[in-house]
């Protein structure tokens, strides 16, 4: 089943800093909720493992993450495809765009399109949108913490 979602975050860093973080495997690894492994295969490709829980279905997704349509320091598309074993599969991507905010920060907007199949769709379908939204929120919370660790301390 397919789903779409979009959102916007204001981040307390300039556009170049945000862009670099978005391309930093360690930052991405630390930001992806449930990330167990995130290895750089090339500048634009990563091998990832993440544990995700959708309603009653818990799955460990193994797959590839690819960066494409790269337009530094403005936008890229981050897409991935993961096999969750008997739980099914998830795939999709997000187009992430950056713009300068008035206060010197950066406005990040994203548009996600994703598709899930197998048991996740069968049992967890009514929860997929909620789970995806929560995952995105967690990702950007983690990402924001990385950009302004002092906020976290406060």
């Amino acid at each position: 089943m397919a789903m779409k979602m979009s959102g916007e975050y204001t981040l307390p860093a300039d556009r170049q800093t945000v862009w670099e973080a978005l391309n930093d495997a360690d930052v991405l690894s630390a930001s992806i909720p449930g990330c167990e492994a995130f290895e750089k295969v090339s500048d634009t490709e990563f091998a990832a493992t993440a544990v995700s829980r959708i309603g009653p279905v818990k799955a460990r997704f193994k797959g590839n993450v690819t960066l494409s349509d790269i337009d530094p320091p403005n936008s890229y598309r981050i897409s991935g495809e993961g096999q969750g074993g008997v739980a099914g599969f998830a795939k999709g991507g997000a187009t992430v765009s950056l713009a300068d905010a008035e206060d010197g920060g950066t406005i990040l907007t994203y548009e996600v399109d994703a598709q899930v199949g197998g048991k996740i769709a069968q049992i967890g379908q009514r929860l997929v949108n909620g789970a995806a939204k929560k995952t995105a929120d967690q990702f950007f919370q983690n990402f924001r913490k990385h950009l302004s660790p002092e906020e976290d301390a406060a």
């Binding site: 089943m1 397919a2 769709a121 069968q122 049992i123 379908q125 009514r126």
Partner: peptide, 14 residues
């Protein structure tokens, strides 16, 4: 089924 062929009514919840 959804358009991808996923069975949306696949349990007694649905």
């Amino acid at each position: 089924y959804d358009e991808d062929g996923q069975l949306l009514t696949g349990s007694y919840m649905d």
